[in-house]
Design a protein around this nucleic acid. Structure first.
Lengths: 234, 234
DNA sequence: TTGACTCAAATTGTATACCATATTACGGTT
DNA sequence: AACCGTAATATGGTATACAATTTGAGTCAA
């Protein structure tokens, strides 16, 4: 009946008090978000309140609040008196998102290059290894999460948590494109290589080179994305 | 009892069909948002559900959904079992936001410089006049809205609606800082001047100059903001 | 005074029932 | 096949009930 309630415990690990009185709402939010970005709910699909209630085992109140949150995040689009649908993505918007990511990430990389300490570099290096490993296993889900780890480390060492927040939100809107992009054959070849170049430039403390590598990385990613999008909706 | 319901009619003016089945929720959302950014609800202030219900004349459901939306927008911060409070802003976050604005706006300005047509420039010019006029009248509320119009025109003619959306969200989080900044004496002197420089560069089709002018504009704005923030919380 | 403990009040978190209204689907009519 | 009216469905919104939790006041003891 209430499959969510059983997970209301605390998260493990950290030293910090980390009071985690996770509310049902938060759990439901996370779960719906991943359901959307992991493509379980497909773009354009209707999200009928009562169905979602049943699937999540929570009341309408919770579902409605969660949907408002996702709406504000740009993951769902609500049509009055017709209900929420999973947001769709057109080629133009996707292009703008990749452009913004290039802008934000290259700035972060440049900044990271001048401030990264050993621990930061270790984190990024670790994430990169995880990416290569996941590619070898063809586990594209892990590729994405390791990629996130890499960039999170980069933005944090650059001291730009606000920018990282924005990038994450942008990524949410192109999540399905990303997973398609990542699993494309050409991406498997160039992707990790380009990211290594970013890390090398950061290691070397060469800000402009790091920024350039970032832009190159996102340029190719954006191109692949455009090809996929045109292929899907001609 | 229901002051909101009376405004559920359509907005006036436009030729467009403007399907305005504005739901209560949307109206309440707008109103709460402006209440926050216009400083009616002060940062750190608690938003007790039932009080807000009374003030808005709507039910708890609506208020809660609106709060979820604002939460996702970063305008309120919810502490579990304690309720939502209006988000506060520390100096570090403010600095990052101004930096992001500089990044986004300078990119847009550069792009606008290469694409602006006569109509675009007319729009921006008009907005600038409105800014100067509002400054002369010391109507700082109008200054802000005219400034928004200027930037909206700029981002639109640059073909970057997604970036504009992000800037607007960032602006929401620093709205009270902006109004303080705008009404500072020094800002009255340099602000419109710097924006004229941006427009001149766009008119001249000089992208790099436009970007530079943008960065200069935001650099001084950011400095003033930092001074104000340190002055407020020492 | 400080500290700790208890208990009541206030508020949030969640569920549920209900109704009005708008949309959609269906089914019959021409 | 196009048209129209009606029923079914879903959303938008309200009200209410209740458990869980925080907060604060007050009390008592050291």
């Amino acid at each position: 009946m209430k499959p969510l309630a059983s997970e209301a415990k605390a998260a493990p690990g950290k030293l910090r008090i980390e009071q985690a009185p996770r509310t049902l709402r938060e759990i439901a939010l996370e779960r719906m978000r991943t359901a959307i970005v992991e493509f379980h709910f497909k773009p354009g699909q209707r999200l009928v309140e009562r169905d979602v209630c049943e699937q999540l085992g929570v009341s309408r109140s919770v579902v409605r609040e969660v949907i408002r949150h996702l709406e504000a995040e740009g993951l769902v689009h609500t049509i009055p008196h017709q209900g929420p649908i999973v947001a769709t993505l057109d080629a133009e918007t996707a292009a703008q998102i990749y452009e913004l990511r290039a802008l934000l990430e290259s700035a972060a990389a440049q900044s990271a290059a001048t401030q990264a300490n050993a621990a930061d570099i270790a984190r990024m290096s670790l994430a990169l290894d995880a990416i290569s490993d996941a590619y070898a296993r063809k586990d594209f889900h892990d590729v994405l999460s390791a990629t996130n780890s890499f960039y999170e480390a980069m933005f944090m060492c650059a001291g730009k948590p606000v920018a990282w927040e924005m990038v994450q939100r942008l990524n949410g809107r192109i999540s399905w494109l990303r997973s398609l992009t990542v699993s494309s054959a050409e991406r498997g070849a160039t992707g990790p290589l380009q990211m290594r170049q970013i890390l090398e430039a950061i290691k070397a403390g060469d800000g402009p080179a790091a920024a350039l590598a970032c832009r190159a990385h996102l340029a190719t990613a954006g191109e692949i994305a455009q090809r996929l999008i045109n292929l899907e909706s001609p």
